[in-house]
Design a binder for these strands. Structure first.
Length: 323
DNA sequence: TTCCAGGGAC
DNA sequence: GTCCCCGGAA
């Protein structure tokens, strides 16, 4: 067991040594955009830029600005028992079906040639947030039937038509707009293919860290980071797997969770951890009233029965009126 | 009726 | 950090 820890530390040290800490490029079109080769921390912000020199009628334009900054990875010991916990969750997942198992994005365009398949994965991913997998899948099918799993065709389709086609997916109007714009960028800057780096994916509106990592994994088979969604975020905290930088406090955002997890979780677990925890979160480790009683790791989980089936203690006030 | 999810805009 | 987008689930 000591060997495990040693191995882990060696691994981390390795990362530390190869850390180049260099700026390697500036992406055109986006002002003041710098990134480093070693992705480690991603922040996304928007910036106001004058739309054009002299059009008083047009408002300022917003550019999405991404900065991937490097941080020195420190030696972080893996959580006690993490292997047993992970193993336990894997066993739980083997014995039951979870919605995530009847997948979505992974299967998108699986019959298509590589480039077309990648595009289908991107579009599928962009549509999938807050949307059941079956609904996303159906929308992808509908696009395919209409010859619209193709950036060129999408660019030539008007937004309302596109929105109508994908309609049952969540936020379809907004997504139609983002998908059209992403298609244009794929054509203009990537020869009709999808971006193959995290940074370029993040530059697409409608693609945030969660989806960007998912696309890198699925479309390019090149896992750059952990795809952290609400389930991974919640469960990692319940397990005591993640902490805010330099503290022992829980993380408060999925991005903090991602960085904290990546510090110690072996890389070959990065891709499978998402479907694993998502399914676990859908069936057992639910946001509200987790089913600790029937959870196979309730003897080793630090949060077992801690927030059990008591009535929702949340008393966060919503905006009750106007001021 | 309220809550919730990724991401954008502010 | 807060609201908004849609619609389904609690």
């Amino acid at each position: 067991m000591n060997s495990v820890k040693t191995k882990r530390l060696n691994r981390v040290l390795e990362v530390k040594e190869e850390h180049p800490k260099k700026r390697v490029g500036i992406v055109p079109d986006i002002e003041d955009f710098r990134y480093v080769k070693t992705e480690a921390q991603t922040s996304v912000s928007t910036k106001r830029v004058p739309a054009s020199s002299n059009k008083s009628s047009s408002p300022v334009r917003l550019e999405k600005k991404i900065r991937v900054s490097s941080v020195v990875k420190v030696e972080v010991a893996a959580p006690e028992n993490w292997e047993a916990v992970l193993e336990g969750i894997k066993n739980i997942r083997l014995s039951g079906e979870a919605p995530v198992d009847t997948k979505g994005c992974e299967k998108a365009g699986s019959l298509l040639p590589p480039k077309e398949r990648r595009f289908a994965v991107l579009i599928s991913t962009m549509m999938s947030s807050q949307t059941k997998d079956e609904v996303t899948h159906a929308a992808v099918e509908r696009l395919g039937e209409n010859g619209l799993l193709d950036p060129d065709a999408i660019v030539r389709t008007d937004e309302a038509t596109l929105a109508n086609l994908i309609k049952p997916v969540g936020f379809y109007q907004r997504k139609a707009q983002f998908i059209k714009e992403a298609s244009r960028i794929c054509l203009e800057r990537f020869g009709g293919d999808i971006p193959d780096t995290l940074t370029d994916l993040l530059a697409l509106k409608g693609v945030g860290p969660k989806m960007a990592h998912l696309v890198m994994s699925i479309a390019w088979k090149n896992t750059q980071g952990i795809c952290v969604d609400t389930h991974v975020h919640r469960i990692s905290n319940r397990l005591g797997w993640v902490f805010r930088e330099g503290t022992k406090q829980k993380t408060t955002t999925p991005e903090q969770t991602r960085m904290s997890l990546e510090k110690w979780l072996p890389k070959d677990e990065w891709e499978p951890i998402n479907p694993l925890l998502v399914g676990f979160g859908q069936t057992i480790c639910t946001p509200l009233r987790p089913k600790c009683g029937s959870c196979g790791i309730n003897t080793i989980c630090p949060s077992a029965f801690k927030e059990a089936s008591s009535p929702n203690p949340k008393q966060k006030k919503r905006g009750l009126g106007r001021s």
